[in-house]
Design a protein around this nucleic acid. Structure first.
Ligand code: ZN
Ligand code: ZN
Ligand code: ZN
Ligand code: ZN
Lengths: 171, 171
DNA sequence: GCTTGAATTGATATATTATAACATTCTAGA
DNA sequence: TCTAGAATGTTATAATATATCAATTCAAGC
């Protein structure tokens, strides 16, 4: 049985994105059922828009796409939906980008660390214990008790490093 | 000779803040001279306002205080000055707060890590090699090359942990 | 099926943060 | 003094996010 290979946290430029979307929605639907949440048309649409790529998308861009899709909507519509999706870990907000990105593993309560490629715009989510430990222990030396670490790292992804920062265009 | 004791990255609730301000301005003046920069009234005022406390302050709050001080100013005035101060490492922007904080050590080019107390609002800046190493090495396992890590950690500072999250009020 | 309260969405207005573009003033040096 | 570049003034606008109240939809119990 093939199954999923060892997971790479950063989506390759040539990966099968349809599979990402399918898996994301499978997980989402499961989560909604388990928790008795309502996967409404609006929520589904917003989630679809967000999962159209691995690039973070702004609230007003989501709004535009909703309108393109024939739905009438206002900023509040989007922000409310984003709040709901974030509460349920289906979406994360990248504070350094004022933008939103889909999450791979909404089952577990978490706050990921993010790698953001400056060239292609793609984001990968990490969940690395060592980073968190380093932050917690360093904070502890000054008596600081960590609650919500924000880690957002810009740089160049594997594919864009190879292209020496000239790469563009993929899901 | 007394000199400075081992530096604690998080300002104590009862520390001598006048000394912080004095030292910050000594460093700033030195930096301006060394680099042939112009420490204008506007820049000095903005830096003073930012150093009034160890809490981050928003651009529009800076604007208000400038006006209180009898200076006429517009948002652009503030943002331009902040840009200048940030270029010269005298000020950092906390992306998770949309707010700005004074920097302790403008001499060295750096991008700090920040501890932000949710109760008293005070911010301490770290510059911890272990955190950066953990981020770089983890990123490297997926071929990602780190350029600009953002680390902003909210939680409770030493003093506020002791008060169990009821503390308030100091510089 | 009908009722009802809660959840969801609609609609309008406004707050907050940040940038664009061009004009004027200041300042260091020739 | 003259002048070019730096700094600031001024006006307008973009981009992001929230507050508030009304209308609609939905699930559950009767
Ligand atoms: Zn994908
Ligand atoms: Zn996640
Ligand atoms: Zn101080
Ligand atoms: Zn600093």
């Amino acid at each position: 049985m093939p199954g999923k290979p060892i997971q790479d946290p950063f989506p390759d430029h040539a990966h099968d994105h349809d599979r990402c979307v399918k898996e994301a929605f499978d997980r989402a639907e499961k989560l909604f059922k388990q928790n008795g949440l309502r996967l409404t048309d609006l929520r589904r649409s917003v989630l679809e828009i967000i999962w159209q790529s691995h690039r973070p998308i702004g609230a007003y861009d989501i709004l535009d796409r909703l309108k393109d899709g024939g739905r009438r909507a206002a900023p509040m519509t989007v922000y409310r939906t984003l709040d709901f999706l974030m509460e349920n870990q289906l979406v994360h907000r990248l504070t350094s980008q004022n933008a939103y990105i889909g999450c791979d593993h909404p089952e577990e309560s978490h706050r990921g660390q993010f790698l953001i490629c400056r060239t292609c715009g793609v984001v990968g989510e990490l969940s690395d214990a060592r980073i968190i430990t380093a932050i917690k222990e360093t904070a502890a030396t000054t008596g600081f008790s960590v609650e919500a670490p924000v880690v957002e790292v810009t740089g160049l992804c594997r594919d864009c490093v190879e292209l020496d920062g000239a790469g563009r265009g993929h899901a």
